[in-house]
């Protein structure tokens, strides 16, 4: 399978706090990679480095064979890296439709006229067609998460980075999120999916990466990783 993203020896420190020591992983074409790890492991920090919000102290990020470690945030978006935020950040005083439209127009650089069709199409896919005219600030949590995914999808990403889209939702709502991720995958997009609700996530992922103590501890097919000694150690006491 074709390799889309290659993260090599990524490290970052804040003062004396060495949050990430050495992260390595590869993401393949049309693959969903689940990322698990305890609170504060640095999962969000890793996404922030991948999207350019934080600068790594060491390491390189290769996207489609190109070193993008020094690219700015908008440049990475235009090259095809989309993301959602752990706490949704909708444009509250814009309508749901305008939120998506903004993603289309700026992320995939098409005119507003061309973008209209695409925006409506995405709204359909994320099941927000009936709320197009509502202000995004008025949406509930599940709809905010949907909008977050839709807005990222509007930028035509090749890789979508999801930061706990399932967090804070009820069990039935989490099922909706799983459908959402499957839909994204069916569009041919590769996904990095950070999630705490492991049970649901395992159903939608091809591989799982365990991140703890600043390192990528294990990575492999979901069953193997969940049965591994490392996961048991980290999740059931005995923090090594």
């Amino acid at each position: 399978m074709k390799e889309i993203l290659n993260v090599d020896q990524l490290a970052i420190s804040f003062g004396n706090n060495e949050v990430l020591k050495c992260i390595n992983f590869k993401l393949h074409e049309n693959e969903v990679l689940g990322v698990i790890g305890p609170n504060g492991a640095g999962k969000t920090v890793m996404l922030n480095i991948l999207t350019g919000i934080l600068k790594p102290t060491k390491g390189t990020i290769t996207f489609l064979g190109e070193d993008i470690t020094k690219d700015t945030i908008p440049e990475r978006c235009r090259k095809g890296i989309g993301r959602t935020f752990q706490v949704p950040r909708p444009f509250e005083k814009m309508t749901v439709y305008e939120n998506i439209l903004t993603g289309c127009v700026y992320g995939s650089r098409i005119s507003e006229k061309e973008a209209r069709h695409k925006a409506l199409d995405i709204l359909e896919k994320i099941k927000l067609s009936d709320r197009t005219k509502d202000f995004a600030g008025k949406l509930g949590l599940l709809d905010r998460k949907r909008l977050e995914v839709g807005r990222a999808l509007a930028t035509d990403p090749k890789v979508l980075l999801l930061d706990e889209v399932g967090g804070g939702l009820t069990e039935s709502e989490v099922e909706e999120v799983l459908d959402l991720v499957r839909m994204v995958k069916s569009q041919g997009v590769s996904v990095v999916w950070i999630e705490h609700i492991i049970k649901t996530m395992l159903e939608g992922t091809d591989r799982v990466l365990l991140l703890a103590n600043g390192c990528d501890i294990v990575c492999g097919c979901p069953q193997d990783v969940m049965n591994s000694k490392e996961v048991t150690d980290i999740y059931i006491g005995c923090e090594c």
């Binding site: 919000i53 908008p74 903004t102 509007a154």
Partner: peptide, 16 residues
């Protein structure tokens, strides 16, 4: 308008 509402989200959508 996107910048007004949330500038960090705007930037990750490709807005300079």
């Amino acid at each position: 308008m996107a910048m007004r509402d949330n500038s960090s989200a705007a930037e990750t959508l490709g807005i300079e």
